[in-house]
Design a binder for these strands. Structure first.
Lengths: 179, 179
DNA sequence: GGGTGTGAAACCTTTCACAGCT
DNA sequence: AGCTGTGAAAGGTTTCACACCC
């Protein structure tokens, strides 16, 4: 039975051991006094809390370079997430594979989302196509969207949008970078 | 002379007006009492503080789908940032363009970085190539690296690394997403 | 001994309230 | 009157110190 202590975790993440214990204690008494945390049960508890214990089915809209890169991104095809379809309006791409992901015609979005029982989507379309794509995703029951298009899109009551702006980490580097 | 008040900014960013004023006051008295902030001078002050007043010259290592997508990403070719070269070890890609970015042979990394006077780099190589690529970038004077490879790389005293893990926003969506 | 869980103290951030400038 | 800048109060988070359990 593998164990881990708050000190080991603290070392790993550059935090204090007290911080680790306080945070974990928020969700119950996961640890055993004098012993530490059982790795298996800790992982299970946290996965359940973060809803990573079930596999989320994801579609990617826009199979340009970004969409294709994300379809192949190993962390998007793991225990918790599975990319089940890609979509593009370019007929030349339809029918091809990107990694293990089949590219569908964007016109079939509603049909394929329903067939695949997808609940999450990644938007990787040009800025001008982002709003209309989001509307279609909302309408066919997608509840979470990760948006890579360079426009900020709003969440709604039925669909949470998270906007990824890759300029922000680059600006952080410019600010903190070695001078 | 365009002006803006802390209330307007607060509305824009969903913050309180006091928050805006306290934060800006950290860096000096940018505003004018009874009037507000002059947009031009506020932008200039903040750009200078964040070191976004000069153009940072960026190279991209690894011109697969992710590297190519980033080379074309409009926000990486703006006032503050300019992608000046791409690199790949695949001879078939060398000499091609991705957007306005010319792809060089990875063997010429040191030469081209010096010629182009680049100071920042984006790593978009497979996991197994990440560590050695970072070592070469550090050795040729790159001071900031944005790492998209799916491994966490450490900063050093001469080179700050920022690791981008796209699984994190996806996990946030899984957790907060509409149930 | 060793390591968790936790009240209390220290520390930091946000909000309030208002003086002061245009 | 209108809006910034800021000391003081309120609120929240991190660290400390130690009781408690294996």
């Amino acid at each position: 039975m593998a164990r881990v202590s708050s000190q080991q975790l603290a070392g790993e993440f550059n935090l204090s051991s007290t911080q680790i214990r306080k945070d974990l204690a928020q969700f119950g008494e996961f640890g055993v006094r004098g012993v530490g945390y059982d790795v298996g049960s800790l992982v299970a508890h946290l996965a359940s809390l973060l809803r990573l214990d079930l596999t989320h089915r994801v579609v990617i809209v826009g199979m340009g370079n970004m969409g294709t890169a994300l379809a192949r991104y190993p962390q998007f095809n793991s225990e918790s997430f599975q990319v089940v379809a890609g979509f593009d309006s370019d007929a030349a791409k339809v029918g091809r594979q990107a990694g293990r992901v089949l590219i569908h015609d964007l016109r079939d979005l509603e049909k394929v989302v329903a067939e695949q029982r997808a609940t999450m989507a990644i938007l990787a379309v040009p800025a001008e196509a982002a709003t209309s794509s989001l509307a279609r995703l909302e309408a066919c029951g997608i509840t979470s969207v990760l948006n890579f298009a360079p426009v900020s899109l709003p969440s709604s009551s039925t669909c949470r949008v998270k906007n990824v702006d890759l300029r922000i980490p680059l600006e952080e580097l410019a600010f903190f970078g070695v001078s």
